[in-house]
Design a protein around this nucleic acid. Structure first.
Length: 107
DNA sequence: AACATGACAGGTC
DNA sequence: CGACCTGCCATGT
């Protein structure tokens, strides 16, 4: 595995951006990518979060896809966990998705 | 170096 | 709405 080397700077930027997402709001992968100065690299955002190291405090749950949906199968534990965390922050789900027009972070 | 993969987005049909 | 396709690019084998 190539884990012998440090994480890419891109990941650092992404994590940094995610940390800035206000509580009670959510951002899409594309948004985070853009805010991290990495336009069109939404996939890297997902990759970065998946590779998220333990021990650092990052509100990964506030990052969802452009449809306002959690990018996990509904039957998965990860999905339920993320939904719980978001609801705790006051985010309301309607039919399995959130209203990006209302709780979306910025434009 | 080549190929396959992925917590996506945006467009088309 | 859903299914499919293309673009993007870091990672791992």
């Amino acid at each position: 595995m190539a884990s012998s080397r440090k994480p890419s700077d891109s990941y650092q930027k992404i994590w940094s951006t995610v940390e800035k997402i206000p509580k009670g709001k959510v951002a899409t992968y594309g948004q985070v990518a853009r805010m991290s100065r990495l336009p069109r690299q939404a996939r890297l955002v997902g990759y970065a979060l998946h590779n998220l190291p333990h021990g650092i405090d990052v509100p990964w749950q506030r990052v969802i896809n452009s449809q306002g949906r959690i990018s996990f199968p509904e039957n998965s534990l990860a999905y339920i966990k993320q939904k719980e965390l978001l609801e705790t922050e006051g985010i309301v789900f309607v039919k399995g998705k959130v209203d990006l027009k209302k709780i979306g972070w910025k434009k």
